[in-house]
C-alpha cells in the first residue's frame, strides 16, 4: 500500500504511520499504518476494543501516541491553524453538553471557527433537524438526533476530511441510509472520509477501502472489492466434518465456518467433485464472496465473544 502512486497527493489525506499507543503493558494500538485517500470512503473495521477509537483520538490530537505519527493533510492535527475548517470530527455523539440546546452547540462551533451565522441553519437543514428540535436541550435528544447534531458540527466548517467514529450508532435504517448517501456524496466530491465501525455489513456498503484492525494491529487492508472478491468456495453438507476431511485428503485447504459451511480454496467444480466422490450430498455450493473477510473478522471477534455462536456479532 505504501508504494501506491496515490500517496503523492497529500491534500485531503489521512496518514497513519507506525502508530503505537501503550497503556502500561497493554498495546491498545500496535504499529498501525494505513492511509485514507481523497475521493474515497475508508472503513476502519474492528471489533469493540480493537483500538479504533484510540487511533482516531490520536489522529485528532485528543491523545498522544507512544510512538509513530498521524497526519491529516500532511500536518499533525494539532498544527492545523483552524482544524474545523479542514477536518470534520465526530468521535462520540453522546459527548455533548446536555444543558445546551442543539442550536447553541452548533453556534459555539460556528463562532470558534469564525463562520457566518447562516451556516448554522444551513447545517440544521442538511442533517434534518427542525428549528423546534434545535431549540430543545441536547439532554432530551435521542442518540439518533445526537448523531445528526454531531454530523452537523463536523460538516459546519465545510471540511475536506471527515473522521467519524461509529456514526451509524443509534440511527434508524432510514438514518443509516441517509448517512451512507451523505458520506458517498462527500467522497465523490473529492473529500476524504474515514469512518470506523464494528459492523462489517455496514462498512461493506459504503467503504471504497477497508482497514481491518484486531487487538491493536492491522490484520487486513485494501480496496473493498478486492477484499471481498471471490476467495474460494463455500460448500455445505450435512456432515461438515466429513466434508472437511474429504477436501483435505484431496489436497485442498478447508476450514469449517461458524455456521456449518466449509470454505475451501478448491474451485466450485473441484469441490463438488470431491464431495460427490466422498458420497456427501451438498446443501450449498457457491463461490465464497466476502466469506474470507467475514471469517477473518469473526475470528477476531470470537476471542472476546461470550456468545458461543459469534455469527450474532454480524447481525
Amino acid at each position: 500500500m505504501c508504494r501506491d502512486p496515490r500517496l503523492r497527493s497529500v491534500r485531503g489525506m489521512i496518514r497513519i504511520d507506525s502508530l503505537t499507543k501503550r497503556y502500561g503493558d497493554l498495546a491498545a494500538v500496535d504499529d498501525v499504518s494505513f492511509t485514507a485517500f481523497p475521493g474515497r470512503v475508508t472503513g476502519f473495521l474492528g471489533p469493540n476494543g480493537a483500538g479504533k477509537s484510540t487511533t482516531l483520538r490520536i489522529l485528532t490530537g485528543l491523545a498522544a501516541p507512544t510512538s509513530g505519527r498521524a497526519t491529516v493533510l500532511g500536518r499533525r492535527y494539532a498544527d492545523l491553524p483552524n482544524p474545523g475548517l479542514d477536518v470534520g470530527v465526530l468521535l462520540d455523539a453522546s459527548a455533548q453538553h446536555g444543558g445546551r440546546t442543539g442550536r447553541e452547540t452548533l453556534v459555539l462551533a460556528q463562532r470558534t471557527m469564525g463562520l457566518p451565522d447562516a451556516q448554522v441553519d444551513a447545517m440544521l437543514d442538511l442533517v434534518g433537524l427542525t428549528r423546534t428540535e434545535s431549540q430543545r436541550r441536547v439532554r432530551d435528544y435521542s442518540l439518533g438526533m445526537r448523531q445528526r447534531l454531531g454530523i452537523a458540527t463536523a460538516l459546519l466548517g465545510d471540511p475536506r476530511v471527515l473522521i467519524l467514529d461509529e456514526p451509524a450508532n443509534g440511527l434508524d435504517p432510514a438514518g443509516i441510509r441517509w448517512m451512507r448517501d451523505l458520506l458517498r456524496a462527500f467522497a465523490d466530491d473529492g473529500g476524504t472520509v474515514l469512518l470506523s465501525s464494528h459492523l462489517l455489513a455496514e462498512i461493506e456498503l459504503v467503504a471504497d477501502d477497508i482497514v481491518v484492525i484486531g487487538h491493536g494491529r492491522v490484520v487486513a487492508s485494501g480496496a473493498t472489492h478486492e477484499l471481498l472478491a471471490a476467495s474460494g468456495t463455500l460448500v455445505r453438507a450435512h456432515d461438515g466434518e466429513a466434508l472437511v476431511s474429504a477436501l483435505a485428503s484431496a489436497g485442498y485447504r478447508a476450514t469449517p465456518g461458524a455456521d456449518g459451511g466449509v470454505v475451501t480454496d478448491a474451485g466450485p467444480a473441484d469441490a463438488g467433485r470431491v464431495a460427490f466422490a466422498a458420497g456427501l450430498p451438498l446443501v450449498e455450493l457457491r463461490s465464497a464472496d466476502g466469506t474470507a473477510l467475514e471469517e477473518m473478522f469473526l475470528d477476531l471477534t470470537a476471542d472476546d465473544q461470550r456468545d458461543p455462536h459469534p455469527i450474532g456479532a454480524l447481525a
Binding site: 497527493s9 457566518p116 465523490d188
Partner: peptide
C-alpha cells in the same frame, strides 16, 4: 485525485466557508 472533477454535491456548500 481524479474524482475531484466530480461536480460538487449539494450536501455541502463548497463555495462557502472553504474560502475562509
Amino acid at each position: 485525485m481524479t474524482t475531484l472533477t466530480t461536480p460538487p454535491a449539494d450536501v455541502v456548500g463548497r463555495s462557502g466557508p472553504r474560502a475562509v
